[in-house]
Design a protein around this nucleic acid. Structure first.
Lengths: 220, 220
DNA sequence: CTATGTGAACAGCTTCACAGCG
DNA sequence: CGCTGTGAAGCTGTTCACATAG
C-alpha cells in the first residue's frame, strides 16, 4: 500500500530522475540500478529506492529498473503523460524570452497563448514563438473554458503580480509559475511555484561570502 | 555564540524576509514583530525569531525589530551590502532576456558582461542592456581577474552546459546560477543554484493531477 | 550474488513553551 | 504587559540494515 503522505522533496527528485532517465534512454540503456541513478544526482541508493517505492514496486530485484518503463511511470505520476496547455501572462522582457524559450515544450507543456494588459502590446506577434499574438486579460476565462488551459506562467512586475494572479485564478487557472519576487496569496486549490532570481543569486552570494572572505566576520 | 551550522532553508527565508522588509521600509514602517513578519510569509513567529537569532540578537524585547537595521543586517549576512559583478554566459533566447531583465540589478548584482561561444554572436550588442557586447569565452579569465567577476549566470543548451561550466570554473568563477536542465558537476568550493523551468512546471503538474481527482487513479 | 523494498534508527528542521528584558 | 531569544519536545525526511526475490 502507498503512504498517504509523500514528502515534497521526493516529488522534486522525481523530476530529476526523469531527466536523467531520458538521457539514459537516449543512450539506449535498458536498465539502471538505484545506485547508478543516485550517484549522478549525489543521492544515496536508498533515497532513490524509497522515492520510487512511494508510488509502486517499479523495480526488479537483481536487475534494477527498466529505463523505458520507469520513464513512463514517472511521467504518469507527474502528470506529464498528457500535454498541459499553458498561458503566459506578461509580455515584458522576461515574458518574451520565456515565450521564445523552448526548453519545456517537448516535456509535456505547450504554450498556447500570451496575455498582457498593456494596450500597446495587445495584437503584437511575438517572434520566435509559433506566431502567438498577445491577447488582453479578458481572454483568460475563454482560454480556460474553451481551450483547456489550466496552468499559467506569471511574468509581470512585482507591483501588479498579486492583482494579475487574482485575475488568473478568477478565470479558473489552477497552477501558477510565478516569476515575480512576491509571495502570492492564493486559495488552497491553486498551486504556486516560485522562481525568484534575486533569491537564488542571494543564496550564491551567501555561500561565496562565507567561503571566500572573512575580513569582517561579524560580532564578538 | 552562534551555531556552527545554519540550516539551508533558513538562508532561503532570509531572502524572503529581506524582500518583505524592503516593502515595509518603502511604507515608512519603523519596526516589525516576528509575528507580523511571519504571517505574510506563512511562517510561525518562532521560525522567524530562530532564523534571525542564528546570526545575532537583532531584536528588541517589547518592541520587535527595527526595519532599517534589520535590512542592513540581512544584506550584510547575505553579502549583498556590496555589489556582485556577474557575467552572463549564453546569449540565446533565455540569455538575451536575462540580460534585459532588470529584476536583480538593484539588489546588489550588476551584469557586467555577456559571453557566448557562437562566432556569429560575438561582437553583437544586446538591446535593452547597457550596451553590453557579446564576448568570446576566452574573455572569461580576464573578467574574473581584472574586472572582479565572481558569479556567472549559465544560460546555454543542456548539451554543452557542463563543458561551459568547466570553462567558467577554470577561469575562477565561484558561483553559478544554472538555467540548463542538467546537474552540474563542480568542485566543493564552487556554489551552484539551479533554476529548472521543466522541474517547476512538473511540480505544478503533479499538484494539479492529484488535486483534480481523476479517471485513472493509479496502478492495480 | 545482485539489487529491490522497507521497518527501524538517525538527523535535521520546526514548533512549543518559557525565562528574561524593556 | 509585549516581544525576543532559546533549550526541549516533536515531527519530517534521510540513511541504515536486512529480509526477500530473481
Amino acid at each position: 500500500m502507498k503512504p498517504s503522505h509523500i514528502p515534497a522533496p521526493a516529488i522534486k527528485r522525481l523530476s530529476l530522475y526523469l531527466r536523467h532517465l531520458e538521457a539514459c534512454h537516449a543512450r539506449a540503456e535498458q536498465t539502471i540500478s538505484s545506485r547508478q541513478l543516485g550517484e549522478t544526482l549525489n543521492l544515496t541508493d536508498a533515497q532513490v529506492r524509497k522515492d520510487l517505492a512511494y508510488f509502486g514496486p517499479f523495480g526488479h530485484p537483481g536487475i534494477g529498473y527498466r529505463v523505458k518503463d520507469l520513464i513512463a511511470q514517472i511521467r504518469r505520476i507527474l502528470g506529464t503523460d498528457r500535454t498541459w496547455k499553458v498561458v503566459l501572462v506578461g509580455a515584458g522582457n522576461l515574458g518574451r524570452a520565456l515565450a521564445a524559450y523552448r526548453g519545456f515544450v517537448a516535456k509535456g507543456f505547450e504554450l498556447v497563448a500570451v496575455v498582457d494588459s498593456d494596450e500597446a502590446k495587445i495584437g503584437q506577434t511575438l517572434p520566435g514563438s509559433d506566431s502567438l499574438t498577445v491577447l488582453p486579460p479578458s481572454a483568460l476565462p475563454d482560454l480556460v473554458e474553451h481551450d483547456g488551459v489550466r496552468m499559467g506562467i506569471l511574468a509581470v512586475p512585482a507591483a501588479c503580480a498579486q492583482q494579475v494572479a487574482d485575475q488568473m485564478i478568477a478565470a479558473g487557472i489552477k497552477g501558477i509559475l510565478n516569476f515575480a519576487p512576491v509571495m502570492l496569496n492564493v486559495p488552497d486549490d491553486v498551486g504556486v511555484a516560485g522562481v525568484d532570481l534575486a533569491v537564488h543569486l542571494e543564496q550564491l552570494s551567501f555561500r561565496l561570502r562565507v567561503a571566500s572572505d572573512e575580513d569582517a566576520p561579524d560580532d564578538s
